[in-house]
Amino acid sequence: MGVNATAAVLAVDAGNSKTDVALVGADGTVLGTGRGGGFQPQVVGVEAAVDALAAAVGEALRAAGRGEGGRMGGGPAGGGAAPGRRERAGGAVHVSACLANADLPVEEDELARAVGARGWGASVRVRNDTFAVLRAGVDEPRGVAVVCGAGINCVGMLPDGRTARFPAVGRISGDWGGGWGLAEEALWYAARAEDGRGEPTELARALPAHFGLESMYALIEALHLGRVPGERRHELAPVLFAVGAAGDPVARALVERLAGEVVAMAVVALERLGLRDAPDPVPVVLGGSVLAAGHPQLNGRIGELLRERAPAAVPRVVAAPPVLGAALLGLDDVGARAAAGEALRAHYAPDRNRVGANRVG
């Protein structure tokens, strides 16, 4: 990690729970890394959220021997600046930031201005964090990614810069799924099973048992009164999958529905990019905690449905960290050589295959 190495990209991957930063050289060398907390501009405001990024950026710059993380560019660095300006250490610096909650282009633009004002690079490009997952899982910027973590989102991209995306802001934009949504559905069915309004399901026993409670009534009371914090609802998604794997029809139907939602998003994105009937295989990258967990019923069904609806699609679960994708996108932006991307990927996934992902189905 030499201070005189040329720094090409400051890569930022910021999710709801954590932020990873990497300063990457023009040859793909990782010069310094940093880690910080979650990125939630919708909760704390844009400036406070970018302040939180600054700690991780500063850590990465200090690790690279570049001071305390102050301004790196020669002047203002807004989202419209072209890559190639010179920074103090003698290299071109471009900020490639893939951020959670940047769901709409107007939000990306606002965040690009806020990040650019910090002077971390001579140019800035902000994307939704799902693009980082996609780029981490493909050798070139071509394919589709579906991320299912707390929520669900899907993006696609082509080497010529065309993209496909969804608003992905919840039910008002037509979304269903994600760990939070699965937990809500499981609670709904379990409550109705216990009080007689719905069909019987093992979820009525398994969900409260997860919290050491004896009934859905007790769990409803505990959630409503805050004795079980609401944020712990996400713990119920794995319970749902376990109950489904044991054969419960209600739980299995919810898993089946999620598989259908994942495939519906992927197929629409493939169609928008003209890739659904492509003559060559097209990667469909699966990421996020729900899909990365590798539940056989869910991931197996996704593979089956994709073979039926988009035969060219090749689903795979991404194994490489999203910050790799943010950095690769940055190298794409500055026109780096392919060897730089290969070196960067080797740093993050030396023991995995070249796209850092596992085939599904």
Rank of each mutant, 00 (worst) to 15 (best):
V282Q: 04
G121P: 15
F166C: 01
D280C: 00
R71T: 13
S96M: 06
I302G: 08
M265K: 05
P296Y: 01
N358M: 11
G161K: 03
F39M: 04
A190S: 11
G361K: 09
L306P: 07
F131K: 03
R85V: 06
A5S: 15
G300L: 10
V267A: 01
A136Q: 09
V147D: 09
G73K: 01
V12K: 03
V228D: 02
G294C: 01
G178L: 00
D129C: 08
A319K: 12
A346V: 04
D333G: 03
V30E: 07
D333H: 04
N101K: 01
G287C: 08
L111H: 01
G198P: 11
L273E: 05
E140H: 05
A77K: 00
R171C: 00
G78A: 13
R125V: 14
A49Y: 02
G58T: 06
G25S: 08
A190G: 12
V24R: 11
L111W: 01
E184Y: 12
E199P: 14
C154H: 02
I172G: 06
C154Q: 02
L329K: 00
F166N: 14
V268H: 12
D103R: 13
G78C: 08
E68I: 00
G15D: 11
D51I: 04
G74D: 15
A346F: 11
D139T: 14
A168Y: 05
P322A: 13
A222W: 05
R171I: 04
G244N: 10
R71V: 15
D332A: 05
R352D: 14
E221L: 11
E87Q: 13
P83Y: 03
V355T: 15
A77F: 07
A82W: 01
D51K: 05
G260W: 03
R135F: 08
L225A: 13
A186Y: 12
E308Q: 13
D160I: 03
G356L: 13
A349M: 15
R257I: 09
M265W: 05
A55F: 04
G28C: 08
A251S: 13
A14D: 01
F241M: 05
E194I: 12
D51G: 14
D195K: 07
G32C: 06
L275Y: 01
V144F: 06
A204I: 02
L328W: 00
L219E: 09
A193C: 10
D139G: 15
D27L: 00
E308S: 10
A338C: 00
L324C: 09
G75F: 10
E235I: 07
